Simulated assay, not measured.
Amino acid sequence: MKSNKPVKQNFVFQKKNYQFMLIGLAVIALGFILMSGGASDDPNVFNEDVFSFRRIRLAPTLILIGFGIEVFAILYNPDKRKTEK
């Protein structure tokens, strides 16, 4: 016989994990946006903006921080913190 009880779905991650994942994706997206641009309209003219601090240091750092946040979001277990208290 079939039971009419609703089956509770268990997700792999909880709400807090998804919030951290969205924050990480936003930081990664910001890094790629800061890295974009700097092209010259004339291919015979070199544009020095390619070597700006924003594109060489800031944007890659933000992308790495975003990936770190993503790893943290995957490994974070909110249930573990509740049981320790």
Rank of each mutant, 00 (worst) to 15 (best):
I56A: 00
L64N: 07
G37Q: 15
V45T: 07
A59R: 04
S3A: 13
V45Q: 02
F32P: 00
N77M: 12
P60M: 01
N10D: 14
P43G: 00
F13R: 03
Y76M: 04
F46P: 01
P6I: 09
N17L: 05
N47F: 08
A29G: 13
G66S: 04
Q9C: 11
I63H: 00
F51D: 07
E48S: 14
V12D: 11
V12R: 14
I74F: 10
L75W: 03
E84R: 02
F32V: 09
P6R: 04
K85W: 11
V12K: 13
F67Y: 00
D41E: 06
A59H: 05
Y18G: 14
Q14S: 10
A59P: 05
D42W: 01
K5H: 14
K8N: 15
P43D: 05
A29T: 13
S40H: 02
P78N: 10
T61D: 11
L64A: 08
M21R: 08
G68D: 01
T61S: 11
V50T: 10
K80G: 13
V27P: 00
G31S: 10
N44M: 01
P43A: 00
P60Q: 04
I23W: 08
G31D: 06
G66L: 04
K15F: 05
K8C: 13
M35Q: 14
A59L: 08
V45L: 04
N10Q: 15
I74G: 10
I56H: 02
N47T: 10
D41P: 06
Y76S: 03
L34F: 03
L58R: 04
A73N: 01
M1D: 10
I23S: 05
G66N: 02
V50S: 09
K15N: 08
R81T: 07
G37R: 15
Y76W: 03
K5C: 15
N4P: 02
G68W: 03
G24V: 00
S52Q: 11
R55S: 09
I23G: 05
R55C: 09
P60E: 01
E84P: 06
F53V: 11
L25S: 07
I33S: 09
R81K: 04
Q14A: 09
M35D: 12
N4V: 03
A39Y: 08
M21N: 08
L34G: 05
